[in-house]
Design a protein around this nucleic acid. Structure first.
Lengths: 213, 213
DNA sequence: CCTCCTTACCGAACGGCGTTAGGTTTCAAC
DNA sequence: GTTGAAACCTAACGCCGTTCGGTAAGGAGG
């Protein structure tokens, strides 16, 4: 090596994600990223092929944290719930990159591997393949919708702004200070209601151990 | 007027949305938009204050088409379902702008007015204000998630690409040719299951006309 | 008719963007 | 001591959103 390299692919990814978390997706530029790394923009291209590629790598790193092991225990309701929670938790840690993550989830390996597990588990539980696909899709809707259109970054601190125009919304629980908790509870409500509604039309379980009628 | 104006705010909005629909959100630039209108970029700024502002106007126009009149009939389940379908339909017509729409739904007047109606109807139906807020949020999750992470623009036409790597996903119904229908059915499944699951924990209805016990 | 003034568009430019081509420095290996 | 490649650099290209100062058109007032 000429001198100890200042850059590495992983340090670039980490710093890029830091900037995204701090300044938003639009706040990330190759020049700013380079500056933050003590380097000029051109130097990044020795480690990263493209900005878009860098974003995909960062995205992949985030998605790797999604845990679908909840399906191993055999109960699809539990698996679905755990997977959704894990997915949302992973996205909620980096809300600014969610719009990028959401575009074409089926193009990312980390996403497809997890989808594969979910799909397989649902089919094993007795759902048809088409149903399994639709359930997995529905779960994505919930998770990405919750991560994206979250209330946390929605409402103004100034309650009076809403009071006059939207009579039904003049409520203290719209304040950002409690919005985070509200987001969490809303997601749990949506997830719980969805899984319960799904269970009501569930297929006969394939009786994994005994044959209790 | 000097001569018949070539530009108007509404023509700019329409053309902008056309470009977004055709070339994506990143495909819209002020220069391209101007060219499409037979004009140079600088001329746009006599009618539009900013590109971001233009996008918000376009967003508002789309959201105006969301119909919440389904709540007028008194049954919150019906209202919720109709509203969600209308919302999704409005977004599905312009999928490329959804990432922009999704960011901060609570900052847009058209969005807040509809949210106000939904919230009021749910409270009238006996839900607490906090529950009403969470239900409305959940509905947003579903709608935006469905519009954003839709399968339609997800999978490759080449089935063989998936066959080896994701054994459970080697299914014909992942083909884009049927993905549109799959998206629709998945949304209906998610919506139906959610509303059904919600109904299972519904409050006692306030008996609007008679008092049948 | 001529002048004036507003309207509506245009040319040119600013700073910033992603990206590339072609240098320059540093250090290990022969 | 020379070679050579790795790691970073400067400079530039063509885009972007946006602004400033101009310029042509046509109605209003004399």
């Amino acid at each position: 090596m000429p001198r100890n390299p200042v850059l590495s692919a992983s340090r670039i990814r980490t710093t890029a994600l830091d900037i995204i978390d701090r300044d938003g997706l639009d706040g990330l530029s190759m020049r700013k990223l380079a500056a933050e790394l003590g380097v000029r923009a051109a130097s990044l291209y020795g480690h990263v092929s493209t900005k878009d590629d860098l974003l995909h790598e960062v995205a992949g790193e985030i998605l790797e944290k999604v845990d679908v092991s909840g399906f191993a225990e055999g109960d699809w309701r539990h698996g679905l719930t755990m997977c959704a929670r894990s997915y949302r938790a992973a996205l909620a840690q980096h809300p600014n990159i969610v719009p990028f993550l959401a575009y074409g989830p089926a193009h990312r390996d980390a996403s497809l591997r997890r989808l594969d597990v979910v799909h397989g588990a649902l089919v094993s539980a007795g759902w048809t393949r088409r149903e399994a696909t639709m359930i997995a899709a529905s779960l994505m809707y919930l998770v990405f919708g919750a991560a994206l259109s979250s209330f946390s970054s929605g409402f103004s601190e100034d309650q009076a702004l809403y009071r006059d125009r939207y009579p039904n919304l003049d409520k203290a629980h719209l304040l950002p200070s409690v919005a985070r908790e509200l987001d969490h509870d809303s997601f749990e409500l949506a997830l719980g209601a969805f899984v319960a509604g799904l269970a009501a039309r569930a297929p006969v379980p394939p009786a994994p151990t005994g044959s209790a009628g």
